[in-house]
Design a binder for these strands. Structure first.
Lengths: 118, 118
DNA sequence: TATAGTACCAACCTAAATGCTTGTAAACTA
DNA sequence: TAGTTTACAAGCATTTAGGTTGGTACTATA
């Protein structure tokens, strides 16, 4: 019945639609939400950036959303938080190596999203 | 001030974080939501599939969600709906060419999502 | 002492996404 | 003619994401 073809697996062994989390859905959840991509893009474009500088660059974001999104991105290993105990306090955020491997994939997605509009 | 480097642009001209929609965010919105990826995976794995077959394969999906997700995917050009006026009515859904170009990108995302867990 | 800057947190509320239940049309089948 | 199957749709409830407001702790500078 089921013919085993040499297709690219989207779920690495598990067949989607899966009950347990597949890595694809996991990845999309990590970068999902309204502010994650703008944050990643800002850090990608400008390198290490301070909290308030991010607030100014990302139009419309609130303290609540920026702080919680940064926390989640840090917990997921996508960004690195470095605190300098100066006065006043300085905190810088930057992309990690994991995220740099993600960038070209997002680039492809962006190109696909551009094409599909035509 | 701004040094023009030869980085991959994620937003094709516009600099994220952007006020207007960038193609990357557009792409993520199209494939976002709880059921879009399971639907695409099911159609990718099994080819043209009927409505009720999708319901059985995708565990936990409701009629409301399946019907509305299919409609959105069709409106966005990701799936093709074909109706056969037999008795009883038969409707089949399948991926379009646009979606087939998306598959390898999702494969990369999946691989990245798998790696990041370690 | 007063003011201002930095990096956040917490409580509350709204709006959007998702879920549940029931209903319907069309056409065969017994 | 009643029942069955298929592919949905409408209405309402619930859950979750996101937004608003206001505040904290620390320290420097005037």
């Amino acid at each position: 019945m089921t013919i085993s073809e040499n297709k690219t697996s989207l779920c690495s062994g598990n067949i989607c639609p899966c009950q347990e989390k597949c890595p694809l859905s996991a990845a999309l959840e990590i970068i999902g939400g309204k502010w994650k991509i703008p944050i990643l893009c800002a850090l990608y474009n400008d390198g290490p950036t301070r909290y308030n500088a991010l607030r100014k660059k990302i139009k419309g974001v609130t303290n609540t959303m920026l702080a919680s999104s940064l926390k989640e991105l840090e917990a997921d290993g996508l960004i690195l938080r470095t605190q300098y105990n100066e006065m006043p306090l300085r905190v810088e955020y930057e992309l990690t190596k994991n995220t740099n491997r993600l960038i070209p994939i997002l680039g492809s997605l962006s190109a696909w999203g551009k094409d599909i509009k035509n």
